[in-house]
């Protein structure tokens, strides 16, 4: 780890140092690639870490850039992952937090910290089936209300489950 930390900017080095100092062993790991800093955080620690990242007296990452999921079927233990990208409006530094999740494991919502996380979490839920605890309105966003399945999971076929034919079974229902 220490050899790759050399590649990031001084500002991110201080962010790295502060996070390591504050949370230490509770962080599951960190990585650096192309000058971007990523931390692995356990779901139960996420709200605390994110609050510290957002607070002006903490790290000052005041804007949520995006929140999205990912599916690694080859990882047996924790096949899901949620990535949260933060930006500091003052310094334009970026930080990414990643949360590994088990199948069916719930994740705390960040929509009370950043209102912009609301739709991101709805999208992540509908695409991956990752539930967000405490979310005010966890319903489908991009797909139809009667859509079944979570399309961005790797085991969901690209052609879809009902594509290629006209649905006649909905006659009279809508």
């Amino acid at each position: 780890m220490d050899s790759t930390v050399e590649q990031i900017s001084d500002a991110l080095k201080s962010v790295f140092g502060k996070l390591e100092e504050k949370f230490g062993a509770r962080l599951l790991g960190s990585s650096v690639f192309r000058g971007e800093l990523t931390f692995l955080v356990a779901p139960e620690d996420l709200v605390e870490v994110a609050t510290y990242c957002k607070a002006p007296e903490g790290l000052g990452f005041d804007r949520l850039e995006f929140l999205t999921g990912n599916h690694y079927p080859e990882r047996i233990e924790q096949p899901f992952e949620v990535a949260v990208q933060l930006t500091s409006m003052a310094t334009n530094d970026r930080l990414r937090l990643k949360v590994p999740l088990k199948e069916g494991q719930k994740m705390p919502t960040l929509s009370s910290l950043w209102p912009a996380a609301n739709w991101c979490e709805r999208e992540t839920w509908e695409m991956y089936g990752i539930e967000f605890e405490g979310h005010p309105n966890l319903i489908r966003l991009l797909t139809d209300a009667d859509f079944e399945g979570h399309p961005l999971r790797k085991d969901f076929p690209v052609r879809g489950l009902v594509g290629g034919r006209i649905r006649t079974d909905l006659k009279g229902k809508i």
Partner: peptide, 8 residues
């Protein structure tokens, strides 16, 4: 290469 990036 293996890795992940974000670019805006």
């Amino acid at each position: 290469p293996k890795g992940e990036v974000y670019k805006a």
